[in-house]
């Protein structure tokens, strides 16, 4: 599969895009807004493509570079995210957000020392954002460090009391690291702040299903489908029960874990 094979949009997406084009000029701001919407709606593939389009207009758009790295991480392609973060850092040397994203990629890859170094570097850079603290919490979670709660609270504070995306993102971080209960807590926070977010309801459903709360999970998925009937929110998927052998391997690994 070539690197450009995913660049074509689905027909529905194109039509949707065309409709928006009638209203706004088709430039990097337009594609960045589209990408941001897609990203926050959990359509990471689309977000990636929109960010690529935005970069075609302006290759020095820091937000697009960062968005692509974040989307790759969300798509479970940490190797590629690391490579792309390096490429972004060639243009935006010592960019705090990109460093943090690269740290997350390293954390997802298992190089926890390197991840911590990058996270430290990101926090030392000027400026501050919720993402740097969220990334720090992600790395700490990967290290089995129990101080991630502090970092996430910093991220929530930086994002503001009405922001629904930050708790949703934090919940996804918890979900990735298999911490179902705090994930549910943050997804609930996200749905409280924005009850019309289909993606947040779907993620809440996933986390609840992991906790064994089948009825509440079903209701959460129902909410997600009611809000956005065009999308299929399935309770099962690639992150369903990994199976007996995966659990056995995890148990064996646990025996040798530091």
């Amino acid at each position: 599969m070539g690197r450009f094979s995913n660049l074509e949009f689905e027909p529905g997406e194109e039509r949707h895009e065309e409709r928006r084009q009638e209203e706004t000029p088709r430039d990097e701001k337009y594609y960045t807004a589209m990408a941001r919407d897609a990203f926050r709606d959990g359509r990471f593939e689309n977000a990636l493509r929109y960010y690529s389009r935005a970069l075609e207009f302006d290759a020095r758009m820091g937000e697009a570079w960062l968005g692509q790295v974040q989307a790759l991480i969300e798509l479970d392609e940490a190797h590629e995210a690391r490579v792309w973060a390096d490429k972004g850092l060639e243009q935006f040397r010592n960019d705090g957000e990109l460093l943090a994203a690269k740290g997350v990629a390293f954390g997802r890859l298992g190089d926890l020392d390197k991840a911590m170094e990058l996270s430290d570097a990101a926090l030392e850079e000027k400026g501050g954002s919720a993402y740097r603290w969220r990334a720090r919490g992600d790395v700490l979670l990967a290290r089995n460090d129990r101080n991630e709660e502090f970092c996430f609270s910093k991220a929530l504070a930086a994002a503001g009391p009405q922001d629904a995306w930050e708790p949703l993102s934090i919940g996804r971080v918890y979900l990735h690291h298999g911490k179902w209960a705090p994930a549910v807590r943050h997804f609930e926070m996200a749905t409280d702040r924005n009850s019309q977010g289909a993606f947040a309801w779907a993620e809440l459903g996933r986390a609840l299903a992991r906790l064994g709360m089948a009825e509440r999970s079903r209701l959460a998925f129902k909410n997600a489908r009611d809000i956005d009937p065009s999308r299929e929110f399935a309770p099962e998927g690639h992150d369903a029960d990994p199976g007996f052998f995966a659990r056995l391997a995890a148990a064996v690994r646990g025996l040798f874990r530091r």
């Binding site: 389009r53 995210a81 792309w84 990994p242």
Partner: peptide
Amino acid sequence: ATAPPRATSLQKRMRRARKVVLG
């Protein structure tokens, strides 16, 4: 280049398997 490198489905499967086997 504005499009990031992407993992093939085979690569993803291999990584998943490696994660299961090697942790």
